Amino acid sequence: MIKIKLIKVIFTGLVACFHLLVNGQGFPTPPVNVVNAETKLLAPVAWVSGTVVSRNNSQIASEVSGRLKMLAELGADVSKGEVIAQIDDQTLLIQKREDIASVQNAKSRLEFLESEVKRKTSLAKRNLSAITDLDETVSQRDVALGDLTGAEARLAKTVQQLEFTQLKAPFDGLVAQRLSNQGEYVSNGTPIIRLVEMDNLEASVFAPLTTYRFLKQTDSLAVSSELGKGIAKIKTLIPVAESRSHLMEIRLDMSTFDWPVGLNIKVAVANGDKKEALAVPRDALVLRREGTSVFRINGESKAEQVPVSVGVGVGEFVEIIGDIKPGDKIVIRGAERLRNGQAVQIKQSNQSLISGKQ
């Protein structure tokens, strides 16, 4: 008899617990964060592809021929004007000495002929010299002047080529690639180093021409990649597209992002007019087998699961369509653990979290 009574007591307790669970009263009151559903101006967006690029990504080529003596290390950070490669200059130094000698010879001949012109001019005035002799000397003087000009030009060219034996960085950047090797003979125009500017990075994004009128109405776009997400300012719109792709290029300012050159990104581009919609943060959406829903907290601090449809999404906010009104308290943290009718408590940190969201 005692055993039967004990079994009845246990069974009665289990039934009571079952009723409590069914009525949503047996779960602990979990802490949640909420925001008010509100009406916002939203516009439909399309996510398009882009790439982080450098404003200057250059193959620095040799401007003279010669053997490569020195080359900057791969991955080196170099400053504008810094020597990044050195070509053997011995042949040009010899050429410079020859050119200097040619200039000196031309100057000496010109000085001699100028004095001859003066002397024969004086003789001709006193009829002591033939005019034809004077004319011939003047002609020789003019030829000597041309020879001097040519010799000086050849010397200047050699001096310039000597300067070109030292390849200097045209901008601050990173040595991304060594296109030639030390000891190789390079010709004029041979690429030697690929230099990439790492400051003031940009994103090259291609979007349909139909988005142009919407892009003109904003100055920044949402960007996303495997390294994070954020907002980037529009630097340039280029409303010109190829006949096949019908895509126009957008350049975004990526100087505030610590993202590497070549990283693939996604960019949200508006492709429709703005409209008023009831919106909540995306974190409020609960995705379950039976469909999409949100949890609303009623006046009794209990969670009410409300089925919704999802409309336009922009950034952190998304339009919801369902039995939700502006001002309803919607759970954005802790909803994944809730059950319909379950009592909840709103975290004390809720206000600071909402402020951070906004």
Rank of each mutant, 00 (worst) to 15 (best):
G272A: 12
L263E: 01
N271F: 03
A270L: 11
A284P: 11
P281F: 14
E290D: 07
E290V: 03
E290N: 03
A270K: 15
L263M: 07
G262N: 02
V267F: 07
G272E: 02
D283I: 03
D283G: 09
N264H: 12
G291I: 09
L285F: 13
L287Q: 03
K274I: 08
K274P: 04
N264F: 01
D273M: 05
T292K: 00
A284C: 04
V280W: 10
A268S: 15
A270M: 13
A270V: 10
R289K: 15
L285W: 09
G262Q: 03
L278R: 08
L287N: 15
V269R: 04
L285K: 12
K274G: 01
K266Y: 03
R289G: 10
L285C: 13
T292L: 13
I265N: 05
D283R: 11
R288G: 07
D273F: 07
G291L: 00
L287P: 06
A279I: 02
R282D: 13
R289Y: 15
E276T: 13
R282K: 12
K275H: 14
E276G: 04
V286Y: 07
L263K: 04
D273S: 07
P281K: 13
I265S: 09
V286M: 10
E276V: 04
T292W: 02
V267A: 06
D273Y: 03
N264L: 02
L278A: 14
G262S: 00
N271V: 10
R288N: 14
L263S: 02
L278Q: 02
L278V: 14
A277W: 01
G262A: 01
L287E: 07
K274M: 08
L287C: 08
N271S: 07
A268Y: 05
I265E: 03
K266I: 00
A279W: 07
A277G: 15
D273P: 14
N271K: 13
N271R: 14
V286D: 13
G291N: 09
P281M: 14
G262D: 00
G291K: 06
K274S: 14
L263Q: 00
P281I: 13
A270H: 10
V280D: 05
V269W: 04
R288D: 08
L287V: 12
G272P: 01
A279E: 07
V286T: 15
D283Q: 13
V269G: 06
A279F: 02
I265D: 05
G291C: 09
L278M: 08
T292G: 05
R288Y: 05
A277H: 06
G262M: 01
R288P: 01
A277V: 00
A268R: 04
L285Q: 10
A279Y: 08
L263C: 06
R289F: 14
A270F: 12
T292S: 08
D273W: 04
L263Y: 06
L263N: 00
V267S: 00
A268K: 06
V286K: 07
E290C: 08
K275A: 05
R288E: 15
V280P: 02
E290Q: 10
A268D: 06
D283E: 15
K274F: 10
A277L: 03
R288A: 13
K275G: 11
